[in-house]
Design a protein around this nucleic acid. Structure first.
Length: 145
DNA sequence: GCCAACGTTGGC
DNA sequence: GCCAACGTTGGC
């Protein structure tokens, strides 16, 4: 199992909107960056991810999982772009802000810090566990702790 | 709203 | 294949 992080501007697509989709999930469309696309192509069904609010909020607010493998992006005819589907799994009881991530020495090499502009990024397991701890949830069951 | 960082495009 | 110009992202 691999871990990822999905960025979204809440006024375009928020965690509340993602949750409203429930188990049906939603296509993570609109990605027009090769590195982000390549990350999605690496994803497998059931891989987990953080849902991060960029621009406004600036915090990790939820846990998602990959519900469909990367396939052509329905919002474009350009064959270069494809994307996965994700569905909401759990709230982060205490959202973890970018500020907190940056302030934590254990997370100094997290892609969220080092690859600021990458909108779909990998999360090393050690970072996953640490962020879950900060957010007040179990890194495996996603139950509040 | 500004602007730094950085990815992409296109002329040469 | 280099690199300048340009566009976009995203923190502040």
């Amino acid at each position: 199992m691999n871990y990822w992080l999905f960025k979204s501007e809440p006024f375009k697509w928020s965690w509340e909107m993602q949750k409203a989709k429930g188990d049906a999930g939603e296509e993570w469309d609109g990605i027009r960056n090769y590195q982000a696309r390549n990350n999605m192509r690496e994803m497998k069904i059931g891989d987990k991810g953080f849902f991060y609010h960029s621009n406004e909020g600036l915090e990790i607010v939820g846990i998602v999982e990959v519900s469909a493998l990367s396939a052509p992006d329905s919002t474009t005819d350009d064959e270069r772009w494809d994307c996965v589907h994700i569905r909401a799994v759990a709230d982060v009881p205490r959202p973890v802000s970018l500020k907190e991530v940056k302030a934590n020495p254990k997370l100094s090499d997290m892609p969220l810090v080092t690859s600021m502009r990458l909108s779909v990024q990998p999360v090393p397991e050690k970072h996953w566990i640490e962020v879950c701890r900060m957010g007040g949830l179990d890194p495996v069951t996603f139950k509040p702790v």
